[in-house]
């Protein structure tokens, strides 16, 4: 895996955000500065309430900030209008949320194709792309199933496929393993890492799951809205074997099939 730092794709400067409940302020981020580099696999770690999700939401143009500057893919996202932010998310970001993040009335394939349709692609092309990505996450045969016919792990894999289907520059994942059992969570992390390796996409993941942290090439720890630690180059390249993924030398599809083989419910 090439972990060479190329250039910053996310640049956060003096970012502050405070929530108010009535007249009581709850500072979520306090003058945060950080850089995320192209093709990085970065994990934001920290306890619940440390500001991970808020930071992810602001970087993903889902939320505004009180002060500071956030430049993502050379675009100052805090100065964008609501419509511009929507377009930005559609074109630049792929999202994986904690759980239940699929559209319940669409099949797995339609869920993935939906974002392609939003991008203006034709129905046929969108379905082809969706089939490709479902295959890539090992769910090629379950495309016609609705979310309620899939396990939690399978639903998260569909969400990963959807996140990558728009060919985004950055994938943001907010606690993607929080609602999964340990084995399924490990396999999902392994999947994210493989996809990162194969498709050279920048991943920014918030998590306090040790397996996710182990998989990261960079780790940023937040506490009470501050960046308290960062390991920019200290972490060795992640080894999938540590994550029970002895599949490194296989093709992506083969690896994924093998990865989830024997336990299709995950």
């Amino acid at each position: 895996m090439d972990t060479t730092i190329t250039q910053s794709i996310i640049s956060v400067r003096d970012l502050s955000k405070c929530y108010w409940i009535g007249k009581v302020p709850f500072p979520a981020l306090n003058r945060v500065n950080l850089e995320i580099y192209d093709n990085d696999f970065t994990v934001l770690a920290g306890r619940s309430g440390s500001g991970k999700s808020t930071l992810l939401n602001i970087v993903g143009a889902l939320e505004s900030a009180d002060t500071g500057e956030v430049v993502v893919d050379n675009q100052n996202i805090l100065q964008m209008s609501a419509d511009q932010r929507t377009q930005f998310r559609l074109q630049t970001i792929g999202f994986v949320f904690q759980a239940y993040n699929l559209i319940q009335v669409l099949t797995a394939q339609e869920n993935v194709a939906y974002v392609c349709r939003l991008q203006g692609k034709s129905k046929l092309e969108s379905l082809e792309i969706a089939a490709h990505w479902l295959d890539a996450v090992g769910l090629g045969e379950l495309g016609s199933r609705r979310p309620n016919q899939l396990s939690g792990g399978q639903q998260q894999r569909v969400a990963v496929a959807r996140a990558l289907a728009t060919n985004p520059k950055i994938v943001l994942a907010d606690e993607p393993t929080a609602n999964l059992d340990t084995v399924t969570a490990q396999k999902l992390v392994c999947l994210l890492q493989k996809l990162h390796d194969d498709f050279n996409t920048t991943f920014l993941i918030s998590s306090h799951d040790p397996d996710v942290k182990n998989a990261s090439s960079r780790l940023i720890k937040l506490s009470d809205g501050h960046v308290i630690k960062r390991w920019d180059e200290a972490l060795p390249p992640a080894d999938p074997t540590q994550l029970s993924c002895p599949i490194k030398n296989l093709s992506l599809s083969q690896r994924l099939r093998r990865l989830f083989e024997g336990n299709p419910a995950q």
């Binding site: 929507t86 377009q87 559609l90 999202f95 949320f97 559209i103 974002v115 939003l118 991008q119």
Partner: peptide, 8 residues
């Protein structure tokens, strides 16, 4: 989620 992933 629909809005987050790009629905206007």
């Amino acid at each position: 989620i629909m809005v987050a992933i790009g629905t206007k």
